[in-house]
């Protein structure tokens, strides 16, 4: 099965940045997909079925929490790992993310090397 990672962020430079940080995986044959808001991200999760999603929280149309909740609880898609990316790092946000079905939580500024390491571990490239 082709491996896919979806990056959902409304800021183009952050999408580019995350994609660049994950370039090693692209070289391994992983397809990197991007979406620029929550709605587009949700549609891509349904259509493309990525194994891993980096999901920004603060986004227009649908925020990351809503997307996460829809994917995990309304659509019942469980074979996707969702990593929430946000500037918020308070415990309450992390708890809220977990309640919404997020698998992991990373705060911005994130460490690009850590991001790659997590993606490799999740996709089984270690």
């Amino acid at each position: 099965m082709d491996k896919k990672i979806l990056i959902v962020d409304d800021e183009p430079h952050l999408r580019l940045l995350i994609a660049r940080a994950l370039q090693d995986l692209e070289d391994e044959g992983v397809e990197l997909l991007t979406a620029n808001d929550g709605e587009a991200g949700l549609a891509m999760i349904q259509d493309e079925r990525p194994q891993l999603v980096f999901l920004d929280v603060m986004m227009p149309k649908k925020n990351g929490f809503e997307v996460c909740h829809t994917v995990k609880y309304e659509l019942g898609i469980q074979d996707v790992c969702i990593i929430l990316l946000t500037a918020k790092g308070q415990e309450i946000d992390i708890q809220h993310g977990e309640q919404m079905g997020a698998d992991l939580y990373m705060t911005k500024p994130f460490d690009p090397d850590d991001l790659l390491a997590k993606a490799k571990a999740i996709l089984g490239f270690e």
Partner: peptide, 19 residues
């Protein structure tokens, strides 16, 4: 674009380091 992304990534690593 890759060169710009590399540069941005390096800056991001620096910000992250200092943070």
């Amino acid at each position: 674009i890759d060169a710009l992304a590399d540069e941005a990534l390096n800056r991001y690593r620096e910000v992250n380091l200092l943070y």
